[in-house]
């Protein structure tokens, strides 16, 4: 099995504009940044959450707290995967009680990651509200979950792979590409 690059659906500029729009939508929906906090899901949700926080600070002159969530211990496929995922630290340095939390991730697909993230968050405290922001929604949900803020909706096939590349993690220019999974015989 290998991946073949098929199309670039968002470049760095497109990503920048999408995040700026999401930042404005967050402010509009929540009427400002009062009680707001961002929580990025490892890995690529974390730099995205920081980028959103930076935009919110530029618009409102208020620094919104940012937390990091590792969902490994909450996965529903731990007992079926043979490659054991590495557990990393959850770092939420603020009290969740009474906060409006915006969960941030790169791609929304089956919804299972978000289910795990919701359980992980609620174990840390009882927020007033949890919202979800994603850069790409590629469909194929397996759970009743939807995003409040979406950078771009992209219809995909299940044999395709959507990969978000961020400067902070991937050391390449920002882009979102669709790759096709090619099954090779023999």
């Amino acid at each position: 099995m290998r991946l073949q690059q098929k199309a670039t659906i968002m470049d760095g500029d497109g990503m920048r504009r999408a995040l700026t729009r999401i930042a404005h939508e967050i402010l509009e929906k929540n009427r400002g940044v009062g009680n707001l906090a961002l929580v990025g899901i490892r890995r690529r949700g974390v730099p995205l959450a920081h980028r959103l926080a930076k935009r919110l600070a530029e618009i409102e002159q208020v620094q919104v707290p940012v937390g990091i969530l590792d969902i490994t211990l909450y996965r529903d496929d731990l007992t079926t995967r043979t490659d054991q995922p590495i557990v990393q630290k959850t770092e939420v340095p603020f009290d969740l009680r009474g906060k409006r939390i915006v969960l941030v991730d790169d791609v929304l697909y089956t919804g299972r990651t978000i289910r795990a993230a919701l359980d992980a968050l609620i174990d840390l405290g009882r927020p007033e509200m949890i919202q979800l922001a994603v850069l790409i929604d590629r469909g194929h949900r397996e759970l009743p979950i939807r995003a409040d803020y979406v950078g771009k909706n992209v219809p995909t096939a299940k044999r395709e792979n959507v990969s978000v590349r961020l400067e902070e993690v991937d050391e390449t220019d920002d882009a979102v590409v669709i790759e096709e999974i090619i099954q090779e015989n023999g």
Binding site: L73, Y74, L78, V87, Q88, K89, E91, D123, L124, G125
Partner: peptide
């Protein structure tokens, strides 16, 4: 090294008010 790194993440759980994760159910 893998055990010590993983333990760093586990120590965070010990500082929570709800000290429980569902990982090893069953």
């Amino acid at each position: 090294k893998n055990i010590l790194d993983t333990a760093e993440s586990m120590k965070e759980i010990l500082g929570r008010s709800i000290k429980k994760v569902p990982t090893l159910r069953g």
